[in-house]
Simulated scan of single mutants.
Amino acid sequence: MANARDIQLDALRAVAVTLVLYAHFLAPGGSSFLGHLGVRLFFVLSGFLITRLLLDARDTDAFAAGPALRSFYARRVIRIFPPYFAVLALVWFTDLEQSRSSLAWHALYLSNFWYALRNDWNPWLLCHFWSLSIEEQFYLAWPLIVLLAPRRHIEAITIGVIAFSLAYRFYWPITADPALARDLLPPASMDALGCGALLAVRRARGADVPRWMRLGWPALAAVFLLVVWSDPGPADSAWEWPRWLLVQVLPLVPLAAIVAACSTGLGGKLGKLAELPPLLGLGRISYGVYLYHPILLAYAVKAQPWIPLNVSEQGPGRFLVAGATTLIAASLSWALFEKPLNSLKRYFPYVQRARTPGATRWISPAAAGSALDLRHTEARR
């Protein structure tokens, strides 16, 4: 069930979005493996939390698949759509960076397909929508599996999804084609989402993270850093494809192990650090930070003549100005827009009240406790 220590997962969201901001505002060359790592951490978190919510709903006495599915989709719409489509409306109204021609793809959560089919990152200010599209595609399909598939098969299905995603990666070295599709189509991210989901499935049956994962993830993280910092060599070198594969796969176990540890609550100094109010606050507004940051950067670049710091290039000036603007906008969005709308989720409970002839009663105490846990966990989603 949901644990009060889950607040540490907000700290992980803060870490993930900080890595993305660093990559897009400060890292030399405009890109960094840290940004990629931040997105992968978001995927593991999403796979874990969504799967756990659905399994918790399924375990209640009053569970019914139809109402649970309707509530899940309604709650996702309430949480995700308003700020997302507000951004699209702003981009359409201003035609920022001549983005109108692609807005239909973004509105349908097909941004990843737009960029993959064109093999190009234009319009650049909406290129981060690819990961939001991946998540929405996951939200559309995964609840059907978790809530409708036979319970005894869900873990095997999850492992199969991870295996399929890993196999998909090996297709690209065979074709020797480094197209954007290798990273943007849904199978390329199902391994991270699946690892989070597998963690939730194992937890639901009382199993913890395997011992080899708890002991081995630091070594895998160290190898990952060595690979990232290694010289990629010239294009088409013998090291290019193995390096790409290792950068994609090696972080999966460390990220899953970190999510597992924070979901049960880190102790000691690390636990206190993970519960610092500024970190938790950043985690709560991380969706807005991720959503708004390239849009606000585009406006900052246009306003460069009136800004004393250099925001047109990667560096401290861009990080300070665009980063501060993003945090302010995301904070206002959360307080005035997103949080009030989230209150509507109470009309869409995962588990409905149970009624008996001539009387109204709540579900059993065990089921009621599960439903309460669901509400507490979902309030942070």
Rank of each mutant, 00 (worst) to 15 (best):
167 A>C: 15
176 A>Q: 14
166 L>W: 14
155 E>H: 09
144 L>I: 10
164 F>W: 11
181 A>R: 02
156 A>G: 15
171 Y>N: 06
149 A>M: 08
167 A>L: 15
163 A>I: 14
144 L>M: 13
149 A>T: 07
153 H>S: 14
160 G>E: 10
159 I>E: 05
144 L>P: 08
158 T>I: 11
180 L>S: 11
174 I>G: 02
154 I>N: 00
175 T>C: 05
162 I>Q: 07
180 L>Y: 09
145 I>L: 15
171 Y>L: 15
175 T>N: 02
146 V>P: 01
149 A>K: 11
144 L>Q: 12
165 S>C: 07
170 F>R: 04
138 F>A: 01
144 L>G: 12
165 S>W: 00
177 D>K: 02
163 A>L: 15
159 I>S: 03
163 A>K: 12
154 I>F: 04
156 A>H: 13
156 A>R: 15
175 T>K: 01
145 I>D: 05
150 P>S: 08
177 D>T: 03
178 P>F: 05
159 I>P: 01
166 L>Y: 10
154 I>R: 07
166 L>E: 09
170 F>Q: 06
177 D>E: 09
172 W>D: 00
180 L>F: 09
169 R>D: 03
168 Y>R: 01
170 F>H: 08
176 A>L: 08
181 A>S: 12
152 R>G: 06
156 A>P: 10
176 A>T: 04
146 V>G: 02
167 A>R: 11
143 P>S: 05
152 R>C: 11
176 A>V: 06
169 R>I: 00
163 A>Y: 14
139 Y>Q: 11
153 H>Y: 10
175 T>L: 12
176 A>R: 13
158 T>Q: 04
179 A>T: 10
137 Q>V: 06
